[in-house]
């Protein structure tokens, strides 16, 4: 394997048991994600997009198979190790922003830094930089409820990048936004990918959102049906 591969999924099986029923989502999925990639994942509802993202982010484990990140297994880590690994390597962006309602924008952005050893001053600087990058420096003290959806999502992006992770995982980041705002967010992600070298995996239902990505994979019934449209 070259050093160029960020994620390597080998023979990943995933099934859920609901009562007596077992639902198979993935039945031997192989996948590689290169460093610096901006990958869009599309597919019908229930095809397993979120489940895949959860496994990449280490919040869910495959039933069997291997998930390698930068050459080392993550599917075998304990809950504590995974928490630390996530804090160090991954930024999450959710459809509904998931900001803490009682915290200001700046405090929301600061949250992931509580998991680092940074000094108060360094944390402050990082928060300022991240907020500047999403063009919300003047909203630092605002509460989420005082901001529009697009602004909230930008705060969420700032939160995702503040600890400088290698990878951003986005589950329908524009699913709750209008066209224009969505484009702003997507441009921001593109910028993070192109200028700051962040690897991005984005799940979306929206074909025009997928256009911002470098390549798009279509997931159906747990398999990629068409590969690499961009290539």
């Amino acid at each position: 394997m070259t050093d160029n591969i960020l994620f390597d999924l080998k023979g990943v099986h995933k099934s859920f048991t609901r009562g007596k029923e077992t639902i198979k989502i993935f039945d031997g999925l192989d996948m590689q994600i290169k460093k610096g990639d901006f990958l869009a994942i599309m597919g019908p509802s229930g095809s397993g997009k979120t489940t895949l993202l959860n496994m990449l982010g280490g919040v869910d484990q495959p039933t069997s198979g291997e998930v390698l990140f930068d050459g080392s297994r993550v599917d075998t880590l304990s809950e504590g190790q995974l928490s630390k690994w996530r804090a160090n390597n991954i930024g999450f962006i959710f459809q509904f922003y998931n900001l803490m309602p009682m915290l200001s924008a700046a405090r929301n952005v600061e949250l992931p830094l509580l998991l680092t050893n940074l000094s108060k001053k360094d944390r402050k600087n990082s928060v300022e930089t991240a907020l500047k990058l999403v063009e919300l420096a003047d909203r630092a003290s605002h509460l989420p409820k005082e901001m529009s959806g697009g602004q909230q999502q930008r705060v969420a992006i700032a939160r995702a990048i503040v600890s400088d992770p290698k990878l951003l995982l986005c589950d329908e980041p524009t699913g709750d936004l209008d066209r224009h705002t969505a484009d702003e967010i997507l441009e921001m992600l593109q910028l993070l990918n192109e200028k700051f070298g962040k690897t991005i995996v984005m799940v979306t239902h929206d074909p025009s959102a997928a256009k911002y990505a470098k390549r798009t994979l279509h997931l159906d019934k747990g398999e990629f049906v068409e590969k690499d449209l961009a290539a």
Binding site: G57, V59, E79, G80, S83, K84, W85, R86, A87, N88, F92, F94, N98, M100, P101, L111, P112, L114, L115, R159
Partner: peptide
């Protein structure tokens, strides 16, 4: 619930 799940996702441990 949602906020706690978010904190956990960000890397806050259960403990």
């Amino acid at each position: 619930t949602g906020e706690i799940a978010t904190l956990k996702t960000l890397g806050f441990t259960a403990k």
